[in-house]
């Protein structure tokens, strides 16, 4: 122990690549876990093989328990980012929860390095917070994750499992719950802003503040969580400062990227639509999936306030890329993609 070696799962992903970049900037030794056969990006390859790199690559499936035991050897910190982001609920449970349990078991066997779990805002029971209220680490977890989308459901199960390992097996756990992570390469118009329905964008977020975090800022927080004293056993919400509203972002998107046709959906209409959608889906045996449900509406598209005070105080983290710059970089990248397309 005491090598300072950091293991990163999901290292080839949108967020994982930035975590590797940050570790390299800090000159920390790291081991990047990559699924066998996954494509090694030129960026990650450079991080691993570049001059003075203290990184190494480990090809290992998170379903391979013996392989996990090997890659955890000598590791002090695990930054667990790997998770399924799409697909059916069973697929996401298999690729997020079952695999996480394998990792936690290996971590316990390895003498419990600190495990930083990158969870999600989706696990928080936002429906319990009144409109305009503050959503922070004090809000309990979602009481009915099965009524949410498959991603939030799987992440909720994953985080609950991590806490169980912390309680029952002494896993040294730190949980980070990032809001919507954005940056170049990721569509800025997330479901928190609205959904595309047959070519028409339904603007659901309206004037609600968006819990955004820029990918590099989020990566910084994750790396900080690996070493910050007093972080173990704690949860941290990760959002940047100066958060924009859904309306501001959609306006900017239409001004700078594409003038997509959209319809603002008032909250009363959204509630009615959700009641109708849920009723129809239930009555017809899922003839149309319940895209909107009253439960989702109360969790996803209401005006709430967000805090990153605890992350700043305990992790000593600050979003080093200001929101204005982060949005500018992201929109510029999106414009390039649009022009290339």
């Amino acid at each position: 122990m005491g090598t300072g070696l950091t293991l990163v799962t999901g290292a080839t992903g949108f967020l994982g690549r930035r975590v590797i970049t940050r570790l390299r900037e800090l000159n920390q030794p790291f081991r990047a876990v990559m699924r066998p056969g996954a494509r090694l990006t030129s960026e990650l390859n450079e991080q691993l093989t570049g001059r003075d790199s203290r990184g190494e690559l480990a090809e290992c499936s998170l379903n391979d328990q013996a392989g996990l035991d090997r890659v955890l050897d000598g590791v002090d910190v695990v930054l667990h980012l790997a998770a399924s982001k799409s697909g059916s609920a069973p697929a996401q449970i298999a690729n997020t929860v079952v695999t996480s349990e394998n990792l936690f078991q290996s971590a316990v066997r390895a003498g419990t390095p600190r495990v930083v779990l990158v969870s999600s805002f989706g696990v928080i029971g936002a429906g319990q917070v009144p409109t305009g209220g503050l959503l922070d680490e004090s809000v309990p977890m979602e009481p009915h994750p099965e009524w949410r989308d498959p991603y939030s459901f799987a992440k909720h199960k994953q985080e609950s499992l991590a806490w169980r390992y912390s309680r029952d097996h002494g896993l040294r756990l730190v949980v980070l719950r990032p809001g919507s992570i954005f940056g170049p390469g990721q569509n800025i118009l997330t479901s928190r802003i609205g959904v595309n329905l047959f070519g028409l964008f339904l603007h659901l977020g309206r004037g609600a503040t968006l819990p955004l975090t820029y990918v590099q800022n989020c990566a910084d927080a994750i790396v900080q969580a690996g070493t910050a004293p007093d972080a173990e056993g704690e949860v941290f919400c990760i959002v940047d400062d100066d958060l924009p509203t859904s309306r501001q972002l959609l306006r900017r998107y239409r001004r700078e990227i594409a003038r997509i046709p959209f319809v603002p959906v008032p909250s009363v209409a959204l509630q009615q639509l959700a009641v109708l959608n849920a009723w129809y889906s239930r009555r017809t045996g899922n003839h149309l999936p319940p895209v909107f449900t009253p439960y989702k509406v109360s969790n996803m598209w209401r005006g709430l306030r967000f805090s990153n005070e605890k992350a700043k105080r305990v992790l000593k983290w600050t979003p080093r890329v200001p929101m204005a710059d982060a949005l500018r970089i992201t929109f510029e990248a999106e414009r390039h993609v649009g022009q290339a397309g």
Partner: peptide, 28 residues
């Protein structure tokens, strides 16, 4: 889902060697 659409048919139990897989199906 298709069993549930058949009148008189009830899924009483689900089973999977992995407890998380069985749990997710039962809860949902």
């Amino acid at each position: 889902q298709e069993v549930r659409r058949i009148p008189g048919a009830v899924v009483e139990a689900v089973c999977d060697s992995n407890p998380h897989m069985a749990e997710q199906a039962a809860e949902r």
